[in-house]
Amino acid sequence: MQSFLELAEKRQSDRLYDERPVEKEKLERILEAARLSPSACNGQPWKIIVVDDPELKNQIADATSSKALGFNHFTKQAPIHLVIVEESTNFSSKIGGLIKGKHYPDTDLGILASHITLAATDEGLGSCVVGWLNEKKIRKLLKIPASRRVALLILLGYTSSSHRDKVRKPITDVVSYNVY
């Protein structure tokens, strides 16, 4: 375990993976970190589908890339795809969301994705969150009910890319105290 700031500094969106398989023990620890993610009213509105079958993984990858726009072709390289499906949340979270005009599962899935990607980094793996996807195609491939939303895909694997320096706005541009 490293300090959290070191972990946050190392975490990046990796788009180049090598052929090494991910050890089962590492995947299980990442999934446990995901399971422990907090959520509004403990609603836990998610299901994670681990796709590690090479043929199915490539079909899922095809549903995330665009020939016309020329992006996301790297998704076939990653040995594991975690398909994050939004599930129904509990009554308390639904009522709170209605009262406040918020859809709390969106926040919950963001927290889940952070837990997964940071746990992957801690395990020495690369990851990338992919939001551009053909939801209908993925639903069909994985037999996901039409009533469920495929929120995102998270790639996992050993990265072949080097660590990049983070380019971020200065803290004074993103943080203020007591007023906007």
Rank of each mutant, 00 (worst) to 15 (best):
D165P: 00
D52M: 12
S127R: 04
L7Q: 08
T89C: 08
P45A: 09
I99K: 10
S66P: 09
P105T: 05
V179S: 08
D165M: 13
T159P: 03
D53Y: 02
I154F: 07
R11C: 04
D173F: 09
G157A: 10
F91C: 09
F71P: 07
I116V: 15
Q59M: 14
K67E: 11
A33Q: 05
V175Q: 03
I49P: 07
D14C: 13
F4D: 00
I80G: 05
A61K: 00
I60M: 00
K67C: 02
N134R: 08
H81I: 01
P21C: 06
K57G: 01
K94Y: 08
D14Q: 13
N72E: 01
E23A: 15
L133P: 00
L112W: 06
E55L: 12
G101A: 11
G110Q: 10
N42D: 09
E135A: 14
S92E: 12
K67G: 03
E19N: 14
D18H: 12
R29H: 07
K166E: 10
S3V: 01
K166M: 11
F91S: 10
R20I: 05
Q44I: 00
F4Q: 00
L118I: 02
V51C: 09
H81A: 07
R148C: 10
V85N: 12
S114H: 05
N42S: 08
G101M: 10
K57I: 01
S37L: 05
K94G: 03
L118T: 10
I95M: 09
D53M: 03
G126V: 04
K169L: 10
V50M: 13
E6R: 02
E25L: 07
A120L: 12
S92Y: 12
L133G: 00
E87H: 12
S160V: 02
R164P: 01
L153R: 02
D14G: 02
S114Q: 13
K136F: 06
A8L: 15
L142S: 06
K10L: 10
L69R: 15
G126S: 10
Q12L: 09
K169Q: 13
K67Y: 03
A151V: 11
E6F: 01
L142T: 03
H103V: 12
I48K: 14
L16K: 14
D108I: 09
Q2F: 01
Y177R: 04
I30Y: 07
S13V: 09
L27M: 14
T64H: 04
K102M: 06
N72R: 03
L56G: 07
L7D: 06
D173G: 05
I171V: 15
G126P: 12
A63D: 01
Y177A: 05
